[in-house]
């Protein structure tokens, strides 16, 4: 059986990928590419209750729970946010609630994208990270 990757391992992979990208243009082109590759969320999920509204862009987040693990799907109307979402899903989706709750997500800082999490009002990204962790906490409580 193949061992599943740990959150930190996936974060390290992103840090390594970004270490090869020298300019801001290359970094953002990579993120934009990830954003384009992330499958659009089905329209039925784009409802008010799934919406995380930022001041500028909107994020939709859907979660599910299976075999002790939490899974996420998400979308955004802005492509750079969508690219960042794609990375967050890669890192956090498919792990146990505890691992998600305790994830520090340092990689965002290490790849130079911390400003996107710091701009509290300008996008729904920071709120999305909080919501992902809140879902993990909720699933943990329900399935204790």
């Amino acid at each position: 059986m193949i061992m599943e990757k740990d959150i930190l391992e996936i974060e390290s992979e992103f840090i390594e990928s970004f270490s090869f990208l020298d300019t801001w243009e290359e970094k953002y082109e990579y993120i934009i590419e990830l954003g384009k590759k992330l499958p659009a969320l089905e329209e039925k999920y784009k409802t008010e209750d799934k919406k995380i509204k930022g001041c500028q862009s909107t994020v939709w987040l859907v979660s599910s729970y299976n075999n002790g693990k939490v899974f996420f799907k998400a979308d955004s109307d802005a492509i750079i946010v969508k690219g960042l979402i794609s990375m967050l899903i890669d890192v956090l989706s498919g792990h146990t609630p505890d691992k998600i709750i305790n994830a520090s997500l340092d990689f965002i800082d290490r790849i130079g994208m911390h400003t996107h999490l710091a701009q509290t009002r300008s996008n729904g990204l920071r709120a999305m990270v909080k919501q992902m962790k809140d879902y993990a906490i909720a699933y943990k409580v329900i399935h204790i």
Binding site: Y28, C55, Q56, I79, N123
Partner: peptide
């Protein structure tokens, strides 16, 4: 194109505009 994407990419070129509502 979402205005925010333009705003982020302009900011990386030292250009400050306002995006949003």
């Amino acid at each position: 194109v979402h205005p925010q994407d333009i705003g982020v990419l302009l900011d990386n070129q030292g250009i400050a505009v306002r995006t949003g509502h």
